[in-house]
Write a protein that binds this DNA or RNA. Structure first.
Lengths: 194, 194
DNA sequence: ATAATAACCAACCGCTCGGTATGTTGCAAG
DNA sequence: CTTGCAACATACCGAGCGGTTGGTTATTAT
C-alpha cells in the first residue's frame, strides 16, 4: 500500500473510532488530526469536506463490517439457531465501550438520517440490504417455519428490537438489560419455527 | 400565572419543541430567544445554563407527557388489548413530523445519556418508572397470561422494540416500516395470553 | 538539470456558540 | 417621593469549529 493510501486508511480508521465514540457532529477534525499526527492540509487532500469523510467512513468501514457480521449466522445451515447464537454471543462478548457507545451504524442513523440526505440514503440502502439478508435466510428454511409469516416484517422486527436493546443498554449502561431483551428476542425467534 | 412564570413556561415549551426537532446540542439558545422574542438576559434569569434548561424540559415537559400517555392503556381493564390498541393508534395518528423527529425522550436518550451524567440519571429513573407501569399492569392480569413469563423482561422488550421501531421509521422516513414492526409487536403481546 | 506533480504543513479566516457583565425599566413597599 | 428589587435588555467575550490559502518537500518524468 502506498504511503498516501496508508494515510487515507489511517484517517478513516481513526475517524471511524472518533465518530463511534462522540457522534459525527461532535467529532472535531482537530481530534482526528492529532491522533493521526497529520495536518489539516493532509486531511483535506484526501477528503473534500468533513461530511465526505463521514460518507467514506460509513461506506468503507461501518457498512462492510456490519454486513459481514450478520452474514455469518444467516448463512448457517439453521439460520434460526444461527441468529440466536449470534445474538447471545453478542451479549457475552460485548465490551464495556460497546455498551456505552452502542452500534456505530445505529448511532449515525439516529444522529444524521433526518439531518443530511446523503447519510439518509446510505443508511436506507444498508437497511434494505440487511433486511434482504434476513428475508433470504428465512425463505431458505421456510418449510420449517410457521405459515403466514411475513418475512420482511419479521426481519424489520428483529432489527428494530436489536437496535432498541442496544439503545436501552447504552443509556442505562446496563449490560443486563440488553441480555434480557435479547433473551426475549430469542424466544420470539425460536417460536418462528413450527 | 404571573408574567415571569408565563415567560418561563414559554421558554420551556419552545425549548422542548426545538430540542425535539434538532436535538439538544444542535439547539442554539438564539433560536429559542428568537421564537420567544426575549433576550438572552431573560433566559439566563430563569435558567442558570443551557443544560439546566435541558433538565427542566426533560422533567417538566417530556417526562409527564410520556408517562401519562402510557398510563391510559396500561390501566385499562385489559392491559394487553389496551397496549395493542394504543400501539396501533400510534401508527394511525402519527404525524409526518413525528415520523421524522421520533420520540423526544428516545432522541434525548440517544444523544445525551452517555455524554452527560445528569441526563443519564434522569433517563434511567424514567425508564424504571415506565417499566414498573408495565410490570404492574401485567401482574394485575397475570392469571390470564402464560406461565413462566418474566414480566420485567417482557416490559423492557416491548419498550426496546417500540424505540427501535420509532428509530427505524425515523431514519427511513417510512411510516409503513413502523406499522410493520408494531403489527409484529402486537402479535407478540397478544401471544402473552394463555 | 529542470520541471511537474503528489503529498503534505502552518497559519489564518469568518462564524457561531454558550456564557457574562452591565445597563434599564416598571412596580411595590416604606 | 424615593428606594429597591424583580424582570428583563444590550453588548460583549473567548473558544472552537469547518474550511481556505499559500507555501514546502520528495519523488518522478523529461
Amino acid at each position: 500500500m502506498s504511503d498516501a493510501e496508508q494515510t487515507r486508511q489511517n484517517i478513516l480508521t481513526v475517524a471511524a473510532d472518533e465518530i463511534h465514540h462522540h457522534g459525527f457532529k461532535a467529532t472535531s477534525l482537530s481530534s482526528i488530526l492529532n491522533r493521526c499526527e497529520i495536518s489539516k492540509g493532509a486531511l483535506y487532500y484526501h477528503f473534500t469536506s468533513k461530511i465526505e469523510l463521514g460518507y467514506a467512513v460509513f461506506e468503507e468501514i461501518y457498512t462492510p463490517m456490519f454486513l459481514s457480521v450478520w452474514q455469518t449466522p444467516l448463512t448457517d445451515e439453521d439460520p434460526i439457531e444461527g441468529l440466536c447464537k449470534f445474538l447471545t454471543a453478542m451479549t457475552d462478548e460485548m465490551s464495556c465501550s460497546e455498551v456505552v457507545c452502542g452500534c456505530p451504524l445505529n448511532n449515525l442513523c439516529e444522529e444524521m438520517a433526518n439531518v443530511d440526505e446523503g447519510f439518509r440514503l446510505r443508511i436506507l440502502c444498508m437497511q434494505e440490504q440487511l433486511n434482504q439478508l434476513i428475508v433470504d435466510a428465512l425463505e431458505r428454511v421456510s418449510e420449517d417455519l410457521r405459515d403466514n409469516l411475513a418475512f420482511s416484517q419479521v426481519g424489520y422486527f428483529i432489527v428494530a428490537t436489536l437496535n432498541g436493546a442496544t439503545s436501552l443498554s447504552k443509556s442505562s449502561r446496563n449490560k443486563e438489560l440488553f441480555q434480557q431483551v435479547i433473551a426475549e428476542l430469542c424466544l420470539y425467534i425460536r417460536a418462528l419455527k413450527k
